[in-house]
Design a protein around this nucleic acid. Structure first.
Lengths: 135, 135
DNA sequence: TTCACTGCAAATGATTTGCAAAGCA
DNA sequence: TGCTTTGCAAATCATTTGCAGTGAA
């Protein structure tokens, strides 16, 4: 679990005021271990916790947190964006039948990596193992 | 390059009639080596080649070809779906500044793969290296 | 003839945007 | 006070869908 004062610091560093909405969403995101959320999931959580936030603000906040380095966007589903509270490099399982996104246990090693095209540098490396039900 | 009669066979096997539109789109897709297309790119190519196809048919065709195993959908961009004419396992470079998708040269080896959750089986493994401009 | 296929236009659904009101420094 | 931030509603945009007309077997 990420220390919460650190979250506030990172907001400050990013020039983001620690508003009621941002703090409440940060708590939902970071207070209970790693999470993978969509905007709709987070809005729903906020609603359940009696936090008044508009969906537009949820979207804004997710993107601001991502830019500030608090979240990482994971592109796995063409219809929805997922945000991961774990920002270090790691792989994902995506359960295609439940739309559930899950972190890997161990860390994957990539060997025989091709040469990076001239003039480009690696931004991130995504490793996604898509799973379907065995039956 | 994929032999074209094979494409027609695969359509037949999938129960898809080789209509004018499907054959024309198949030619655009498979006649000139590996490609990575979005629906809009393919519609634009068709237009340039004076092929009359509606955008809805382009979408239908891309999905039908994917289900028939002629294409592979690559999820890299939250705003657009890409389809790859190479259906064997391989990794991708995604140029974030140009939205260009490119196949890897060599083949990547994944080691230290985690255990697959009980009751699930691997559908596909996606390896995407996101690139940004060095400057 | 029959059923699959196509094209059009409308519907959908996630995300973004404009802008006035409210909040933080 | 002055600049952010929020919330609402409208706008956007890729994609899907309904359905009447067209085409292949």
């Amino acid at each position: 679990m990420r220390p919460f004062t650190q979250v506030i610091d990172q907001l400050r560093t990013a020039g983001l005021r620690p508003t009621r909405q941002r703090l409440a969403l940060a708590k939902l995101l970071f207070e209970n271990g790693p999470r993978h959320v969509t905007a709709e999931m987070l809005r729903s959580d906020a609603h359940d916790a009696s936090i008044r936030v508009s969906l537009a603000t949820v979207y804004n906040t997710l993107h601001q947190f991502t830019k500030a380095g608090l979240l990482r966007e994971i592109v796995v589903d063409p219809t929805r964006s997922y945000f991961d509270t774990t920002t270090t490099e790691h792989g994902h399982f995506f359960h295609e039948d439940t739309n559930l996104l899950e972190d890997f246990e161990g860390d994957v090693k990539l060997t025989n990596l091709p040469a990076i095209p001239e003039g480009s540098k690696i931004s991130t490396v995504d490793v996604i193992i898509r799973l379907s039900s065995k039956n």
